[in-house]
């Protein structure tokens, strides 16, 4: 049986006064890729934000590698090995590509950073050669696809054990979607656990192991990618 790396137990969270999560329970096994699907506003992004600390958890528990993280601020969650990539990317637009990558390793100790930073940057450049070409350019001047690559690259600089991806293929051209999906697959092969939200299950079906369907702030179904695809196709008119 696979080792559980993350467990959410009856998690409640609110956006202001509006409930976003109403008792979400799910788990992730080490090294697997899991997708969250559901209609707009069903709480998919809220799940990711509750895990990474951006959305305060008001009830329930989040367990990561045998320690509770639901009361930790985002900056502490990162140091536990969880990186979050927002739908809006949240890049430092007036800073260069290389500075964005360097800041991805911010939470590491000085010694760790000195030992690993060059090697980690080369790994990112190998995954996304275009970032090497654009390393001195402002992040804000990159195209949408390049910004997505930089967001993934920056998250990888933290050497995450768990990567949370919010709509990583949103708004990208088909070729770039292929590229991003292949990188996610490669990260999974390297042992990084992945939880991703995607509007189009079809795009990521080959790389995910399982998925959860959400509705109105709750997980309503868990299934294999094929099962989820059948359900999604059957209900696409309502989503």
């Amino acid at each position: 049986m696979s080792e559980v790396i993350l467990k959410m137990d009856n998690v409640h969270a609110n956006y202001g006064l509006v409930p976003a999560l109403r008792g979400v329970s799910l788990h992730l096994n080490k090294g697997e890729a899991v997708v969250l699907i559901g209609n707009h506003g069903c709480g998919k992004t809220a799940v990711l934000k509750a895990i990474c600390g951006l959305l305060p958890v008001v009830g329930g528990k989040v367990l990561f590698e045998k320690s509770f993280i639901h009361r930790l601020p985002p900056e502490k969650v990162v140091s536990r090995g969880i990186s979050y990539i927002d739908e809006m990317k949240l890049l430092f637009s007036s800073m260069s590509v290389i500075d964005n990558l360097i800041l991805g390793s911010y939470h590491l100790s000085r010694k760790e950073r000195r030992e690993r930073i060059e090697q980690d940057i080369q790994i990112v450049y190998k995954l996304f050669p275009v970032l090497k070409e654009r390393r001195k350019q402002y992040a804000g001047s990159l195209s949408g696809g390049e910004q997505q690559m930089l967001a993934i690259g920056r998250a990888l600089m933290a050497s995450p054990k768990l990567l949370l991806l919010d709509c990583p293929t949103l708004g990208l051209a088909p070729k770039l979607v292929e590229k991003v999906v292949s990188v996610i697959a490669e990260l999974k092969d390297r042992g990084v656990t992945i939880l991703l939200v995607d509007q189009k299950l079809q795009q990521v079906i080959n790389i995910v192991n399982r998925g959860y369907i959400m509705m109105e702030g709750r997980v309503i179904l868990e299934g294999s990618p094929e099962e989820l695809l059948l359900i999604e196709e059957g209900h696409c008119q309502t989503w």
């Binding site: 951006l54 927002d86 949240l90 430092f92 800073m95 800041l103 911010y106 920056r154 933290a158």
Partner: peptide, 23 residues
């Protein structure tokens, strides 16, 4: 310096700064 860059990052994109571990 990484601390100086982190200071700039806070002004540029505070939420992004938090997601990379900057307080």
């Amino acid at each position: 310096t990484i601390q100086g860059k982190a200071l700039r990052a806070c002004a540029n994109e505070p939420l992004g700064a938090r997601t990379v571990g900057i307080s």
